[in-house]
């Protein structure tokens, strides 16, 4: 066995330690949007983001000194969502599909629903790149660093993701011929 180091880069800095309440207030909703866009379930997104903030709070003396505490919370929330999704995919797949079909009184508009559904058709890496770029406002370089790939790879993911969404979300009234 070989001892390795951490997933989370924790370089300490001399800047002011962020306040947990301020970080929560500034980022809870945005992180929820990102998780919702990727996984397609708003309540699930809210749950995992709240859990990620709880975990951040439990180790705040460490997380607060990271260069980017929000990135840590996002990664934890994302990993939690992946774990839940993997379990739910087999055990609750039917119920989840039913839930998507339910009318949403206070949910997003049909246009937003269409975007989330179109995102769900993309391969995971493309979907993640699109969400991180358009909703988390990460640059190509930042996404590449997060994913551990070359910037060109991220550009390719974004290009393919844009192309796929552009076709699926083309303006109403246009048709695409299928061979």
């Amino acid at each position: 066995m070989a001892l390795t180091t951490d997933l989370h880069p924790p370089p300490e800095t001399t800047r002011a330690v962020p306040d947990f309440d301020e970080l929560y207030a500034a980022h809870y909703a945005d992180l929820t949007v990102q998780l919702f866009a990727y996984f397609g379930d708003r309540q699930e997104a809210q749950d995992v983001v709240q859990e990620a903030f709880c975990r951040a709070l439990a180790r705040w003396s460490s997380v607060s000194r990271y260069d980017d505490p929000v990135a840590w919370v996002r990664r934890v929330a994302w990993n939690l969502a992946v774990s839940r999704w993997r379990r739910a995919r087999t055990a609750l797949g039917f119920l989840r599909r039913q839930r998507v079909a339910e009318p949403q009184v206070d949910g997003p508009s049909p246009e937003r629903v269409a975007l989330v559904r179109a995102l769900a058709t993309l391969p995971g890496v493309q979907r993640r790149a699109m969400v991180l770029h358009y909703l988390a406002d990460l640059t190509v370089a930042e996404i590449a660093q997060r994913e551990g790939v070359a910037e060109g790879t991220v550009k390719s993911w974004l290009h393919r993701g844009r192309a796929a969404l552009a076709v699926q979300l083309r303006p109403t009234g246009t048709e695409v011929s299928r061979g």
Binding site: D21, Y24, V33, A37, S109, L115
Partner: peptide
């Protein structure tokens, strides 16, 4: 613009449990 709309709509509908 679509993503910005999704963000705006969803943020408006999210009720944070709170710190």
């Amino acid at each position: 613009d679509l993503f910005a709309g999704l963000r705006a709509d969803t943020v408006a509908a999210v009720l944070p449990p709170g710190a």
